[in-house]
Every structure is written in structure tokens, then in C-alpha cells.
Nucleic acid binder design. Structure first.
Lengths: 238, 238
DNA sequence: CGTCTAGTTGATTCGCCTCAAGTGTTGTGG
DNA sequence: CCACAACACTTGAGGCGAATCAACTAGACG
């Protein structure tokens, strides 16, 4: 239920019993959100930090003309708005499914960071890994085709979900609509639809009702030119 | 010559005399690089951290087919490879001009982070601001036209250079070729060329021999749909 | 049942890419 | 001091990938 945060941070640096207990102690102030709700809002007040314990969500920015760009997907264990610990949040976060979120008072996190360097380092590492994912998306947007971008994203989500124990037998929950995919990958909804069909025809994936099934991992990996190094997950050698 | 690092970090959190002295003490091991040299290499050994004191550089990744994606530009005061403090570097950094770089032993930086929280926070803030810039690029790649993307980048560089005192009267050094711009913005060289011409015809900018002159700031800002909030620079209200 | 959203399909248009060739400038060695 | 690379930039022509416009289907929900 809620060693989620610990398990997630342990991916970025092991720490011992008492340290883990201190991290676990942060997980209070549980709050539930419904699918579609905003978990945090751009420019919002510097309220308590949020950790996603259950469910999935996404970061996004709205453009003046009403279009949306999705900046990343969040899975259980991810810190939602670490940025707002030090800066104002420059994007919003919305729930993809019903979500359980822990609200951590800023002061307590700051104390923990100062008193427990291993935890501070794990947090910092996690935020750097997050930035690495964004850079990888940038590479995709700049230089990969629609087909490659979708394949790459599916590889990424599959491995990330596996790293927190939410992928089995090449199946995982990825409850996005084709519109979400379009806004994440910089494509039109129509083209996303057609490209998904191509991926299906090529027998690389099955994707329906929010479940992603990878049918041909080597094929998908090749299609997306996917190299998991940027995820900085231990033991993720595709 | 070299309060560059201090001045740069002060943008992300003020600190006092002794703290500044401690930061300044980091600036040792000066090394010069020529234009075109790599300042740091993807996957390279976890050697000393590098700070760019003079000159400009860019982060990039090469794709298997030889194409290049530029992930960001570095200006004086920027930390080149903070990522390698906690993770292996997943991209390379190359010099745009001759560069002066300070090599900071990892251990000394780690000590400073532990002993001087204000400096640690400024560093963290700086790395979060860097991530914010990458996200903004992602928005541009996903949802902005070639014309808008170039305009946006010029706005960004203009303000960033101003924030470190390297822009005056709407002029700044931005020594990139059209090929660099193309690889940064995900465009072909041909299209970059034509789009630059359009920006010139519209009297928004002059851009030649590595110097950028903004002729019509409101116009450029509108063309790029530029909102400086994401830069997290104090007092940058366009 | 009517409405809303998600997904699908076809036709058309357009932004940007690729290919191809040329100019201008710089630097280098004979 | 000139020939000649090498590179940045420019221009034209043609083609493709993806956007847009416009329906239409199917399931979910009140």
C-alpha cells in the first residue's frame, strides 16, 4: 500500500532501516483525487509537496490557443511537484485515473533533506532522472517519426512500470486515451490513431482499454530506437 | 574574471560573504577548450565536475543514424555536468566557442553541499531551472511552428544572457550556425535558413556572424509566444 | 433515449523534408 | 600570392509526413 515512496526512492540510492523509517514517516496526509482532477496547478501556492502513491497522472502545459502539451507521465512512487520545493511550479499535473496522494509538509521534507544526506541524494538523483526523461522526449520530438515516438514511449512506460512492480508478462496499465498520446508526442489525434494501427498491424503491441501489451519487445525496441540507459534504472538492460 | 559562478548561483538564491567565499574557492583547476571540443562526454568517467566560466557550449545527443539533437545551450556561469554528480552523464557537451572551464573535484562539492545548505539549495534550484528550460523546449517542439520556435529560442537566449550581464542594447553574442539551430529545434538546415529569412523580413531580428540583435522585442515575443516565467529569473518580466 | 467522449475513416492541404546545385568566406599549403 | 578545400549559407524543385476538415460508429452515462 505505501512503501511506494521508499521503494521508488530506493531505485535511486539505497538507505538503511532508520532512514527508511524517516522517509516512511513523511507519508501522511493522504488524499484521494478522481480521474481528471488536477493534483497540482501551475503557479499555485507553495503548499505541501505531493507524492503519488497510487494511480497515474501527467504533467502538462496549456497554450494560449487552448492546445495542450503533455510533459511527462507520473506513476506510483513519483514525486509530483519537487520543483515547487525550490521554485514555483511552471506546469500543472492532472490525474489519469483515481489517485492516492500523500501531502508532505515542506518543512518536514526540508528537515529530512538536511538531516539525512542519503535521502537528499536519492531525491536529487530522482529529480535528475526525471530531467533525463524529459531530454529523451526532446530527442524524440526533434528527430523521431510518429511511429518511432509512440514505440519509444511504450518502451519507456513499460520499463518504468516494471521498475515499480506494475508490469507483468509484458502487460501493464497505461490508462491514456489517444488524445493524451497525441498531446504527449506532438501529434494530431488522427495521425496518432493511424500510427497506432500500424503498430498493431506490425504485431508490436496491443493497446486497448488502458492496457498496454507488448507483443514483440525486440521489434518495439528497434522501432523506437530505444536505449533504456537514460532511465537510470538499475538492471534495466532492455 | 571569475565571480561568474557566484553571480550565476546568486540568481537562484542569495548567500552571504563566507558562503560566497566558499563557492569561489571551488573555482580552481582552470582549463581551456577550443571551439568544437567536447567539454564532457556521454557515459564518460565520473571525473571532476565542470563549470563554464567563459564562452558558450551546448548539450547534445547523437542518434545511431548520425543525426544530432541539441538539448540546450550553456552560457557563462552554468554548471556543465551537475548530472554526473549523482548519475552517469547521458549526453555530451561541446564548446561553441573557445571556453574557459573550472574543474571542481567531486568531493569538495559534496562537502560544500553538506556543510552549506544555502549553496546546496541554490545548486538544486539551478538544476530545476535547467529542467524547466528543457520542458519549455519540449512544448516548442510539440506545438510550435518553425517560425515560433526560432523566435522563442532567441527570446530565451537574449534574456538568459542578459541575466549574466552579457546582453546590452538588445545585442548579444550567440555564436551558433544555422546547423546548430536546426539540430536544436528539430528542423532541417534548409528550412531553418528560410525561416530565419522570414524573421529578418519581418524586422524582428538581425542575426549574423554569431551576433543576435533583437530589433522588435514585442514582435519577437509575440511570434514565439514567449513567457519568461519558466526561466525563473528574478525580475525578468519580458 | 439523447448526449458525450473515444475511436475510426476518407479526402484534402500544407509545413517541412530531401535532393541538388550554387555562392561566399575562410583558412591553408604550395 | 594564389589554388583549393572546407564550411556556412542560399536557392529551387519536388515529395512525403502529418495536419486539418468532415463524417460516422460505438460504447458510457444520466
Amino acid at each position: 500500500m505505501a512503501p511506494r515512496l521508499i521503494a521508488s526512492l530506493q531505485r535511486f540510492g539505497a538507505f538503511s532501516g532508520p532512514e527508511a523509517a524517516a522517509v516512511q514517516a513523511l507519508v501522511t496526509g493522504l488524499r484521494d483525487f478522481a480521474a481528471g482532477d488536477d493534483l497540482a496547478i501551475e503557479g499555485g501556492p507553495a503548499s505541501p509537496l505531493r507524492v503519488l502513491l497510487e494511480g497515474q497522472a501527467f504533467r502538462y502545459r496549456m497554450l494560449p490557443d487552448g492546445r495542450r502539451q503533455i510533459l511527462g507521465f507520473l506513476i506510483p512512487g513519483d514525486i509530483i511537484d519537487l520543483q515547487s520545493l525550490f521554485l514555483t511550479l511552471d506546469h500543472s499535473i492532472a490525474a489519469l485515473t483515481a489517485c492516492e496522494v500523500s501531502l508532505v509538509p515542506r518543512a518536514r521534507l526540508v528537515d529530512l533533506i538536511q538531516s539525512t544526506p542519503p535521502v537528499a541524494h536519492a531525491l536529487w538523483r530522482a529529480s535528475l532522472a526525471d530531467a533525463a526523461i524529459t531530454r529523451e522526449w526532446l530527442v524524440g520530438m526533434g528527430r523521431r517519426s510518429a511511429y518511432g515516438r509512440i514505440a519509444h514511449l511504450f518502451c519507456e512506460m513499460s520499463l518504468r512500470l516494471r521498475s515499480v512492480g506494475l508490469e507483468n508478462h509484458h502487460r501493464c496499465a497505461f490508462p491514456v486515451t489517444q488524445l493524451h498520446l497525441s498531446d504527449a508526442l506532438g501529434l494530431s489525434a488522427v495521425h496518432t490513431n493511424r500510427t497506432l494501427q500500424a503498430l498493431r498491424v506490425d504485431n508490436l503491441i496491443a493497446f486497448q482499454s488502458g492496457e498496454l501489451r507488448v507483443l514483440d519487445w525486440p521489434g518495439l525496441r528497434a522501432a523506437g530506437d530505444f536505449d533504456p540507459a537514460y532511465l537510470h534504472l538499475k538492471g534495466a538492460t532492455a
